[in-house]
């Protein structure tokens, strides 16, 4: 990445440009990999790109940035993702 020597609003790409947005979360998506059928609906509909797609089409959730909107759980047709309130005592 080349930095430009000019004083105006030039911004550079950064993960977490607004900080660790996982802190925004009220509900935490929990993925049950046994139930997952690798349909990738959660991956493609995640507005935050925080569902990580692996080569075998299995997925993981990036909790550092996941804002907890719950779309992944809503679009999952096999209920492999459920939402749990953050900080809930186990």
């Amino acid at each position: 990445m080349k930095k430009y020597d000019v004083v105006t609003t030039i911004s550079y790409p950064k993960k977490g440009a607004m900080g660790k947005t996982g802190n925004w979360r009220v509900f935490r998506p929990i993925l049950d990999k046994d139930k997952c059928v690798k349909c990738l609906r959660c991956w493609i509909f995640c507005p935050e790109a925080t569902i990580t797609r692996h080569k075998d089409d299995s997925v993981d959730i990036d909790y550092v940035y996941c804002k907890g909107c719950g779309i992944c759980a809503d679009v999952c047709k096999v209920k492999a993702i459920i939402l749990e309130r953050e900080g809930k005592k186990k």
């Binding site: 993960k15 947005t21 507005p47 935050e48 790109a49």
Partner: peptide, 13 residues
Amino acid sequence: IPGSAACPGCPAT
């Protein structure tokens, strides 16, 4: 890139 200022559930992103 994750960690933007978008609202949760944003259709634009």
